[in-house]
Write a protein that binds this DNA or RNA. Sequence first.
DNA 1: AATGGGACCTGCGCGC
DNA 2: TGCGCGCAGGTCCCAT
Length: 266
Amino acid sequence: MPELPEVETIKRELEKAVLGKKITEVCVCNPKVIREPAPERLKKELTGATIKNILRRAKVLIFELSNGKSLVIHLKMTGQLVYPGIGKDARVVFHLSDGKTLDFNDRRLFAELRLLSDWKNLKFIQGLGPEPFDISLEQFKAMLDKKKTRIKPLLMDQTFISGIGNLYAAEALFRARIDPRRPASSLVDKEKELLFKEIKDTLREAIEHKGSSIDQYVQLTGRPGGYVKYHKVYGRQGKPCLVCKGTVKRIALGGRGTYFCPRCQK
DNA sequence: AATGGGACCTGCGCGC
DNA sequence: TGCGCGCAGGTCCCAT
């Protein structure tokens, strides 16, 4: 579930907590989460390296290291980074030069961890579309015009626009009063404009509240994010719409649970 | 090109 | 109380 706001929250906290520290030891408790290289080689190459820079691209975290390599982490749905670590149920434990640990947890083993020479060459990274904050309204409008596909799955398509997942797609569409099933190209200018604004506002507000703790997401400290109480439709099926008092519905769209208010969203 | 489904996983909540 | 089942979702992959 971690989307742009959650990963951005972790990134900012990591900068304060572990930047400049050295990795003194790595414990791989479950090698399944390591995509490349082989766990033994990863351990060897990480040990002794200093964390020089921490970046986020879409939902991906990148640790640039003093040895020229980069540790690339995609949390997928249930990945967590916790500092100081407690070691409980961790899949990978990074021991740092301050005597503390950084825990990498992942209940469902979907997350991916890689050590690469050049993270920009990773196929997934290369395929990413622009982030919402990096494009203009005119660009956003032009991008939608070319697409006949339904707007919600399109917003979640990382090759189209990156950083938005199921939760924030639903929230932004509700706030823009657009039915998630609408073909993207059917949106008129006013709707595109409003949607673009609401996407950015929703993401910004979620970052301010340090993300949405649905399922497994927690901040680096292990505390939950505070944005769930501001959700207007996500997870609220059967409950009254906060705007019109109609009932929030849940449908499947592109195989994903989709929350919306049929009365508000046209 | 667009869409649907399955796979990857595990734990939770549901109905019986 | 316990069992089996559906569901949760980011991404990839395959089929239509």
